[in-house]
Amino acid sequence: MTLPAFPDAAPLDGLLGGILIGLAAALMLLGAGRIAGVSGLGARAFGLSDGGPPRNAAWAFITGLPLGAFIVVLASGGIEAQFTGFGPILLAGVLVGLGTRLGSGCTSGHGVCGVSRLSQRSIVATLTFMAAGIATVALMNAIGLEVLP
């Protein structure tokens, strides 16, 4: 299925992927009693957070991410991915690491888990990082800064 106005969009893949992400977060919540927030679990796994679940649990979650993606790659015979160059990646990485720790969460913890819980903090955080992301892309396009090959 495609959307007539957006021929490049993949709505069914998106919905299926989203449902799997929701099930993953629900398993973490109802099974282990924790928020499936990747920035927090990542920090915990690497010893950069004093709170959170036992470190081996954080490691197990973080290790599962590329393994799950790898299974999809194997099953589908490769998936499309277009990355920016190393410069933008390194700059973005530092901003993402700094910002998610100061802001106590990212797309998963705030955007999925917190928003669905109707947490005011998460709703504010999500609106803020969405707006900042949209503004950043718009600004880069406006000044002709092309980062994708």
């Binding site: 990355f83 993402v96 802001g103 955080a125 803020t128 990082f129 900042a132 949209i134």
Partner: peptide, 12 residues
């Protein structure tokens, strides 16, 4: 923090 994160998200 969320704003900084969003800028990084948009860049890469």
């Amino acid at each position: 923090g969320s704003a900084l994160f969003g800028v990084g998200w948009g860049i890469a």
